[in-house]
């Protein structure tokens, strides 16, 4: 239960959470397309969209600080690139437009992913005729992220309790051996999962 941080609020109960995932997927997608294609002379539409998203956030009962901290983390790279646009002619306008658009898009997707369990998103993608192979891989990946994080935490703890002096070089080698070990365990687990899937008739 410790890895809730990944999609902690996607399973709570609210009017937004109860919406069919397919509808949410389409609404979000159309909204993103709209946000990036509305010409700047209709700038007044952006605060309006922002207001709608805020309303949805309130309805969804997801804690507001949680959503905003997510948003803030993701804004870093956004600001980084947007800064480069300041160097263009009319840079300020461009900067403001970029920041507004990308923030609204981020907001939309964050709302979507935090109000829809990943399994339901995959189900919706399946109905949209996504390649089944990719969907199987995505489902497996999502499932085992949690297991691998656990495994990595256990390895880190075991290592920390055994290592005393940590200089720069040994920190890198420790990190690398951790990653290497994690890869070995992943491949071994993949073998066992393959056996378990075959045992239940997978073909």
């Amino acid at each position: 239960m410790r890895h809730d941080f990944l999609d902690k609020y996607s399973r709570i109960n609210s009017p937004i959470h109860r919406l069919p995932s397919m509808a949410k997927l389409w609404i979000s997608f159309s909204l993103v397309v709209a946000i990036i294609s509305i010409p700047l002379r209709f700038f007044f539409l952006f605060p309006f969209i922002g207001g709608v998203l805020l309303g949805a956030l309130l309805l969804s009962r997801i804690p507001i600080p949680f959503i905003f901290s997510r948003l803030l983390i993701l804004e870093f790279f956004t600001v980084g690139i947007a800064m480069l646009s300041l160097l263009r002619p009319n840079g300020t306008m461009l900067f403001i437009a970029l920041m507004t658009r990308s923030t609204l898009c981020l907001f939309t997707v964050i709302l979507l992913s935090n109000s829809t369990p990943f399994a339901e998103l995959l189900e919706a993608l399946k109905r949209l005729k996504f390649p089944p192979l990719i969907l199987t891989i995505l489902a497996l990946m999502y499932r085992y992220i949690f297991v691998l994080i656990d495994e990595m935490e256990r390895m880190t703890r075991a290592r920390e309790s055994r290592s005393f002096s940590v200089n720069r070089r040994s920190r890198w080698t420790l990190l690398a051996s951790l990653i290497g070990q994690l890869f070995i365990r992943s491949t071994e687990r993949a073998e066992r999962i393959y056996a378990a899937m075959s045992a239940r008739g997978w073909k």
């Binding site: 199987t136 995505l138 497996l140 990946m141 999502y142 993949a190």
Partner: peptide, 21 residues
């Protein structure tokens, strides 16, 4: 391909976790 699917899925989870370090 049957054998590769779990491996690819796990490798994807591995990369995801490794990127968190």
């Amino acid at each position: 391909v049957q054998r590769k699917i779990p491996l690819i899925g796990l490798a994807a989870a591995f990369v995801f976790v490794a990127q968190m370090i």
